[in-house]
Amino acid sequence: MQHTILDRVDQVAGDVVSLVLRGADGPLAPWEPGAHLDLALPNWLTRQYSLCGDPADRGAYRVAVRYDRLSRGGSEYIHRFLRTGRALDVSLPRNNFPLLPAPAYLFLAGGIGITPLLPMLRAAGAAGTLVYLGKSAETMPFAAELRAEYGNRARIVETGREGRPDFSALAAALPAGALVYCCGPASMIAAAEAAFPAGQLHVERFQPVARTFPPNSAFDVVCARSGDTVRVEPDMTMLDALHHAGHPLQSGCREGICGSCELNVLSGQPEHRDELGAADGRMYPCVSRSCSDRLVVDL
């Protein structure tokens, strides 16, 4: 974990605040556009937020938090109780949504989904354009900042007045080799998936897609470094089973989205239930299980 001090809180939309976290012990860990971090709150909760500042600024991180009226305690605490000067621990940045090389980019943002795309637009330079959707400008964080910095390269769409733009028309206008990065509500991501080819579109979700999996079955996890074997019963997650057996793992979302609980699999066949497209011997035990009776992990 890294130690930071909450340096500034800015209201950037009607229900969104921006937090600037300054390193308490010197420069903070580097990061690239698309990265996020875990923020450990004083009320014992840990939440994940996309970094939306400048990667070149090693002295501070910036994140933005929308107040969720169905909050489980994270956004409510930040909006109601968090004050400047507070010491806060944050994780090293992780990037499950990297900006890949391309001759041109289209960034599609919906509401708070602008956060991972802000540094991407800056990194893309003249090769990137943004279409940013929200009910009204007042509800759209950083809209004024985007207008001032990018002009016509940042199209602000107030869907309450204009409706959602035609994503198929946007797809038809893209130059060859362009990549599309999309983050926002589930309905917007679904519309983007219908309009853009899978190889061209990269998305980041705030919530997992509802999917159906086979019934849970029991399996054994062998911890290669300790030699322990841990039984995972059908009514328990692999993450919880390891924790109860004395092998606690870092965890955040517990929905297969943030990647904080990543494990390396040495043998066996994981059943991937995450949203991260785990491959190359990785799995996320907060939601994923095993297709084989036995998994060997690097733990």
Score class of each variant (00 low, 15 high):
Phe107Arg: 01
Val232Asn: 08
Gly227Asp: 05
Asp57Arg: 14
Arg164Asp: 12
Arg211Ser: 09
Asp228Ser: 04
Leu249His: 07
Leu45Asp: 05
Leu19Ala: 00
Ala245Gln: 06
Leu174Lys: 12
Val180Pro: 01
Arg231Asn: 09
Ala154Val: 03
Pro55His: 11
Gly113Met: 08
Pro141Phe: 01
Ala224Arg: 14
Arg205Asn: 06
Leu276Asp: 09
Ile78Pro: 01
Arg153Ala: 12
Ala87Asn: 13
Glu76Phe: 06
Pro42Arg: 10
Pro93Gln: 03
Ala143Arg: 00
Cys52Leu: 03
Arg273Val: 03
His36Leu: 09
Val90His: 02
Ser71Arg: 01
Pro285Gly: 04
Asp68Asn: 13
Val230Cys: 07
Ala178Gln: 07
Gln269Cys: 10
Asn43Asp: 15
Tyr77Cys: 07
Ala198Cys: 13
Asn216Arg: 13
Leu276Ser: 14
Ala198Thr: 08
Gln48Trp: 14
Tyr150Met: 09
Pro185Leu: 05
Leu39Glu: 00
Tyr150Val: 10
Asp7Phe: 00
Arg147Lys: 15
Asp7Thr: 06
Val203Thr: 14
Ile5Gly: 01
Gly151Tyr: 05
Ala245Asn: 07
Phe97Pro: 00
Cys183Lys: 02
Gly134Trp: 00
Leu41Trp: 02
Leu276Gln: 14
Ala154Asn: 05
Val180Gln: 05
Pro55Ala: 10
Leu133Arg: 09
Asp25Asn: 14
Glu162Asp: 05
Arg72Ala: 08
Pro270Asn: 10
Leu28Tyr: 01
Leu37Trp: 02
Arg254Gln: 08
Ile189Ser: 02
Pro285Arg: 03
Phe206Leu: 06
Glu193Val: 10
Gln269Gly: 07
Gly113Pro: 11
Glu204Cys: 12
Val12Pro: 00
Arg66Cys: 03
Gly128Phe: 09
Glu158His: 07
Arg211Gly: 03
Leu295Gln: 06
Val131Ser: 09
Pro185Asp: 09
Leu108Ser: 04
Arg83Trp: 09
Asp89Val: 11
Gly184Ala: 09
Met188Asp: 12
Arg83His: 11
Leu146Asp: 00
Leu249Glu: 05
Leu41Asp: 01
Asp89Ser: 13
Ala218Tyr: 06
Leu100His: 13
Ala137Thr: 15
Phe206Ala: 04
Ala186Val: 14
Leu82Asn: 10
Leu117Met: 04
Gly184Gln: 02
Met283Thr: 09
Glu138Lys: 09
Arg231Glu: 08
Leu179Met: 15
Gly277Ala: 10
Leu179Asn: 11
Asp166Lys: 13
Asp7Trp: 00
Thr84Ala: 15
Tyr284Gly: 11
Val65Asn: 03
Met283Ala: 08
Asn95Ile: 04
Val209Thr: 15
Ala126Val: 08
Thr129Cys: 13
Pro30Glu: 12
Pro93Arg: 00
Gly177Thr: 07
Asp274Val: 03
Ala29Leu: 15
Glu158Thr: 07
Pro141Ile: 01
Leu242Ser: 05
Tyr67Gly: 10
Tyr105Gln: 08
Gly246Phe: 12
Ala154Ser: 07
Leu21Arg: 02
Gly23Trp: 06
Arg22Met: 09
Val230His: 04
Ala102Gln: 05
Gly14Met: 08
Glu32Thr: 15
Arg294Cys: 08
Met236Asp: 10
Val63Ala: 00
Asn216Asp: 15
Glu76Leu: 11
